[in-house]
């Protein structure tokens, strides 16, 4: 099941048959059946163990050592953690990451919710065009290279729009520590996909909900607050976790666009972690990774508090 399907089905109004609360309990499975199940689960489980938990655990262990690639490994206690804790560039990278996350979640995650809801009010034909625009499969690297040119402060398309079309002063775009993060996030407003998932989910809401609300005297805003948003909630909740994790882990895009500049104003935590790896400081890098992991987990826990599992239960 794709994410989209799942999202649509979660939020769609297809009501379950009456009386689902009294589900019949399955009888205990036979031994043979248990064995079969275990065998089915085994590949995924060992994959997760090998490529998920083992590296995670090892990263944790390594962060307490000198982490030499060859030669004897010595335990160094919290040395790496202390080094990372007091490194001013780590604090700066966390600050940049936090701003990036807030901007990207605010602009490319929440705005599309409202854009999608507004679009649903438009004729079907327009909806299809917008979905197509959102669905254009722009490859990460290719579009990044394109935007690198468009953002050029001397001959880029955006500068042309700013000066020739809007009649503004020339803008610095990426060449400004105040603006660089905004402009890095900006293309995502147009080309990032959650809008598509929102629209698919919205299309799965039975029209009768809106009609009933309309007849019961609800205007556009009340319909949005009492129907569209609650119905989107499970999807928003799930996508928000991805967005939070994705934006705290952001790496490739700013790396290629600015390399972290100007003056480290766009260097995220993972970018700094990568620089540490470049300097063969594996223990420091893993310690920084642990900091990031803890920070992200805290955000996810907070997020879970705000979104209960199922609004219909």
């Amino acid at each position: 099941m794709t994410l989209q399907q799942e999202a649509t089905e979660t939020a769609g109004g297809a009501e379950p048959p009456a009386g689902t609360e009294s589900q019949v309990r399955e009888p205990a499975p036979s031994r043979r059946r248990r064995l079969e199940r275990a065998l089915f689960v085994l590949p995924a489980f060992s994959f997760q163990l090998t490529w998920g938990w083992y590296p995670l655990l090892m990263a944790f262990v390594i962060s307490f050592t000198n982490a030499r690639v060859r030669g004897p490994i010595e335990f160094t206690g919290l040395e790496s953690y202390e080094r990372m804790w007091s490194d001013p560039l780590v604090a700066e990278a966390f600050r940049v990451t936090a701003i990036y996350a807030v901007l990207s979640i605010g602009l490319t995650f929440f705005i599309p919710i409202f854009v999608a809801i507004l679009l649903m009010e438009m004729p079907k034909r327009h909806i299809r065009w917008m979905m197509l625009l959102w669905f254009i499969p722009l490859s990460g690297i290719a579009s990044t290279l394109l935007f690198r040119y468009m953002f050029n402060a001397q001959y880029g398309l955006f500068q042309w729009i700013a000066t020739e079309v809007l009649g503004l002063e020339p803008q610095p775009f990426l060449n400004s520590s105040d603006q660089v993060l905004f402009w890095l996030v900006f293309p995502g407003i147009l080309f990032f996909g959650p809008g598509l998932i929102y629209m698919a989910t919205l299309q799965g809401i039975p029209a009768s909900y809106y009609e009933a609300a309309e007849i019961e005297g609800a205007g556009f805003w009340r319909k949005m607050w009492t129907i569209s948003l609650p119905r989107l909630r499970p999807v928003i909740s799930m996508l928000l976790i991805f967005a939070v994790i994705g934006s705290t882990q952001v790496f490739e895009y700013p790396m290629i666009m600015t390399g972290g500049g100007p003056g480290g104003a766009s260097r995220t935590v993972v970018m700094y972690l990568y620089e540490l790896l470049q300097n063969l400081r594996y223990a420091d890098a893993t310690a920084l990774g642990v900091f990031l992991f803890i920070g992200t987990m805290l955000l996810v826990i907070i997020q879970r508090r705000f979104f209960r599992e199922d609004p219909d239960a």
Partner: peptide, 21 residues
């Protein structure tokens, strides 16, 4: 006149009651 200003009440085939309320 819009439905909400017509002062009507309607019972739908699928009842259209809101599952999250």
């Amino acid at each position: 006149i819009r439905p909400r200003d017509r002062r009507i009440a309607m019972v739908f085939q699928d009842y259209a009651i809101f599952p999250h309320l």
